[in-house]
Write a protein that binds this DNA or RNA. Sequence first.
DNA 1: ATGTTC
Length: 475
Amino acid sequence: MDISRLKQIEDYCYTLPSDGKRALVKLYGSQVLLETMDDKVLEQISNVARLPGLVGAAMTMPDAHWGYGFPIGGVAAFDPELGGIISAGGVGFDISCGIRCLRSNLDLADIVPVLPRLADELFRHIPAGVGEEGSLKLAPRELDEVMLGGAHWAVEQGYGEADDLPCIEEHGTMAGAVPGNVSQLAKQRQRGEMGTLGSGNHYLEVQVVEKIYDAEAARAFGLHQGQVLVSIHCGSRGLGHQIGTDYLVSLAKAAQRLGIALPDRELACAPINSPEGREYIGAMNAAVNVALANRQILAHLTRQVFAHVLPASRLDTLYDVSHNTCKAEKHQVEGRERLLYVHRKGATRAFGPGHPAIPEAYRAVGQPVIIGGSMGTGSYVLAGIKESETKAWSSASHGAGRAMSRNAALKKWHGRELIDELAGRGILIRTRSMRGAAEEAPGAYKDVDSVAEVTEKAGLARRVAFLRPKACVKG
DNA sequence: ATGTTC
């Protein structure tokens, strides 16, 4: 990106001032991250700033990259009372894609002797890959229950523990889901896909806490150096994708009917207070619950594998965060509390200390924020901070963020060589897809260390721990 | 992300 058009307003924040046709655009990042960022990010977030009812600035996080309509790493809040809109492209096709992080009672030395077997067993028992189905086959009525109950439904069915629920965003169940707004095709696609990882950048990773940045927050999160963690990155699979596809059409028609000028047809949207907008929100919330249930089932499968390979192990939920959502939240705007619909696409909610939505055990230090790194590099646990509320509606980065397209990565790397090289560095990858491995080459992503550092320096969240991968199941 | 090209 050519940053000469931008004006630096803070150490790690640049703006494209309004031209009268759109609201303010704010890009959080370092000079290096922004210079290497795709031009499309600026174009896309400028388009978002032209949508009706936007409050404050349209923003991008330090890990932003080109997405469908909205950039991935985009944050934008809309006020329904000002004609504010909801956009399927602002949520993302993988609705409620997110990360479940489990902390164990094991240290690195406990897993080293069994690591290859652990990786093999996880690969065998965690369904992963395109179209891969799990052992569950749900009848339509059962799927309706999943869409209403989320992780609660999964716990009731015997997947995982009730203790997991307080440490899941929305305590495991998203309110406002309307299964009737979800098409038969979306439901049909999901029937066999509960408890599956999916493909692309989704993964299940065994990690070790390598560095602690903030001792107090680490203590509150139950983290210590050398500790083994498991992170599960996945979303709402075929159902979420089909809802995105279905509502793109319906929202585009609504925009046309209501005369909303779309700077890009990929920004199809409708007012929050319109029949189409409301209908999408009901369907989206149903997909959020499917994702929460999916990660709950996968956590259960992970525990079963650990219990088999390492019988003395225990895995507790540290936190479960979504990074593809639009949520109705109360925020202070010019001294007045307003209900805003905050789109976070490839961005994590990051409430600061004291927020009532944070689990009690963590409330004093802030919401756990998880930045999932690329295959083989590393991930970060951060904590939400007060400052982020005024800067970015309490949002932070979600991952390393792609630096290169999948096609470009395919030309540059070979899956087999990459996996062998990682194995040489003590990181075991298990996947059915060599093509997928090449697309996910660590070199195709931004430097996750800079993303985490800049996220902290920009005042979006503060670093708590760095996690080094040891074994990874890829879709 | 995705029954990997509407």
